[in-house]
Write a protein that binds this DNA or RNA. Structure first.
Lengths: 268, 268
DNA sequence: CCATATTTGTCCGTATGTATT
DNA sequence: GAATACATACGGACAAATATG
C-alpha cells in the first residue's frame, strides 16, 4: 500500500544553479553586504558557463534585492544589505491581483494596526515615543494643507507606531496594507467632501491613541486604533460588511463602544 | 526651507522595461493564467530588443512565479496562476539572515491564526466545517506515523481553518508564516524527542478549537488556538521572549489562563 | 584633466536537445 | 517517424560607462 513515491523530473537550468550558489553565499554570510562579487567574466570562468547564463542569474538575484551591478564597475556586482522591499513587492503583486475585497483588506488592516498599537504601547522605548509625538505634531500642522499631504503625515505616524511595535512582519505588512488601502480608496472615491471636520477628529483620535501608548496601556491603544480605523473606513462598505468588520474588532480584542460614532459615519 | 527634492537617476535597463510591461499585462488580467505569452522570438520583435534581453526579462518573471517556459514549447511561456510561493521565499530569505527573529515570527503567527480561528468560527459555512472535521480526522489517523506526515496533516487542518476565515490575506499570510516557522524550527532542532505525547495533546487541543468553531464561538476558538500555538512553540524561545509572546496573546484577545500549561513547556 | 583598460549593457550568430504537428 | 519551431546555452562583437594611472 505504501509504495515509494517518485517526483517528476524538472530540468534544472544552468542559471538556476548559479543563483543557488550565489544566494547561498550571501544568505550564509560568506558574502557580506558591501562586498563585491567577482565580475561577470570571472564568474563565467568560475562556474564554467557562458556569460548569458551568468547574466540571467545576476538579473534574478538583482530582482530579489540581493545584489546590484552597475555598468562599467570593475569591482563587480555589489552585495546589498538584506531588505524587506522584495517582500513588499511580492505582497503588492498578490494584493493587486487576488481580487481582494475592500472588506478583507480593512479587516486585515484593523487586525495589524491593532496589534501594532498594542505592541507599541507595551514595548516602546522613549526614543520611539518621541518619534511618534513628532509625527503627530506634523500631522496637526498639516491639517490645513492638501489631503495628500495630510495623508502623507498620517502615514508617517502609523509607520512610527509600527516601528515601535518591534515586529518586522507586523511593520512590513501594515505598511503594505496601508498603501493598498490608500490606492483602493482613492481609486474608488474622489474624497473631496468637507475634509476639515474629518481631519480634526482624526487628529484628536490619534492623539488619544498616543496617550494610551504613552501610558503603556496596550489594550486601550489597540482598541482605540481599531475603532478609529473602523469609523474612518466604515462609510465605504455596505452595512453587512460593516458587521463583518465589527466582528473582527470584537474578536481582535476587548471591544469599546462604537455605536456613538457609528451614527455619524454611516450616513456619509 | 521646503526645497524641491530630486531623486538620483538610475538607468532603467531594457530588460526591466520588458518585465514591467509583461508584469502589467499579467497583473491587470490582460494575460490570464493558463494563457501563453508570445515566443521569445516574437517578444523580441514586439519589444524591438535582442533575444538576451527578452530572456533576462523572462528569467526574472519566472523567478517571481509569474510565468514558466519549457524548452521546445511552441506555445511560448505559460502564464502561471498567482501563487504565494514567491512571498514565502522572500520571507524565508529575511528569516534566514536573522533579520527576522523567531519571536517576531511566532508573534505574527499567533496573531494571524488567532484571527483565522475567530473568523472561521464566526463566518464558516457548514461545508467548510465539514472540511475541517475531515482534516482533523486525518490528523488523528496519522498520529502514529512519521513526524513529517503528522506535520503535513496538521498543516491541512490549519489551511482548512484559514479557508473558512474567508479572508484571503489572513489565509495567505498564515500559510506563509506556517511554512517559515516549520523551516526554522526543523532547521534548528532535530525534534525527535518523544513526540507521541505531544502529538496526542496536540490533537486534543485542536479538537477543542474545532468544537468552539462548531459552536460559532469565535472568542473561545481564537483563545484556544493562540494558547495551543504558544504552548507548542514556547520551549524554543527564551523566557524573556516567552513574555513577549504572552503579551501579544493578551492584547490579541481575551486571555485564558496559560499558567497551568506553562510549567510543562518551560522545562523542556 | 586626460587617456587607457576593463566592465557592463546589448546585440547577433550558432549548435543542440526538445516538444508539437 | 519526419519536419518544424522552440528554448537552452554558447561565443563573439560593439558602444557606453567606470575606474585608475
Amino acid at each position: 500500500m505504501n509504495q515509494v513515491q517518485f517526483e517528476p523530473i524538472k530540468p534544472v537550468r544552468a542559471y538556476e544553479r548559479v543563483v543557488e550558489q550565489v544566494e547561498m553565499a550571501i544568505l550564509s554570510g560568506k558574502a557580506r553586504p558591501g562586498e563585491h562579487l567577482p565580475s561577470e567574466r570571472e564568474l563565467m570562468a568560475q562556474f564554467a558557463v557562458s556569460r548569458s547564463t551568468v547574466r540571467e542569474a545576476l538579473r534574478v538575484l538583482e530582482s530579489h534585492g540581493l545584489v546590484q551591478s552597475r555598468p562599467g564597475d570593475p569591482n563587480g556586482p555589489i552585495v546589498l544589505p538584506i531588505s524587506s522591499v522584495p517582500l513588499q513587492k511580492s505582497m503588492t503583486r498578490l494584493a493587486s491581483t487576488q481580487s481582494l475585497t475592500l472588506v478583507e483588506l480593512l479587516q486585515f488592516r484593523i487586525l495589524l494596526e491593532g496589534a501594532s498599537a498594542f505592541l507599541a504601547a507595551e514595548q516602546r522605548t522613549d526614543e520611539q515615543l518621541a518619534k511618534m509625538e513628532s509625527a503627530l505634531k506634523d500631522l496637526s500642522g498639516s491639517a490645513d494643507k492638501t489631503l495628500t499631504e495630510f495623508s502623507q503625515a498620517d502615514l508617517a505616524f502609523h509607520e512610527a507606531m509600527a516601528e515601535a511595535s518591534q515586529n518586522t512582519l507586523v511593520k512590513i505588512c501594515a505598511q503594505v496594507v496601508r498603501g493598498v488601502t490608500l490606492e483602493l480608496i482613492t481609486g474608488k472615491v474622489a474624497r473631496s467632501e468637507a475634509p476639515d471636520d474629518l481631519m480634526q477628529s482624526w487628529i484628536e483620535r490619534h492623539t488619544s491613541v498616543l496617550d494610551a501608548i504613552r501610558k503603556k496601556d496596550g489594550l486601550t491603544a489597540a482598541s482605540l486604533m481599531r475603532r478609529d480605523l473602523y469609523d474612518y473606513y466604515a462609510p465605504y462598505v455596505t452595512e453587512e460588511e460593516q458587521q463583518r468588520l465589527r466582528r473582527l474588532m470584537e474578536g481582535a480584542g476587548p471591544a469599546l463602544p462604537v455605536a456613538d460614532l457609528l451614527s455619524q459615519t454611516t450616513n456619509g
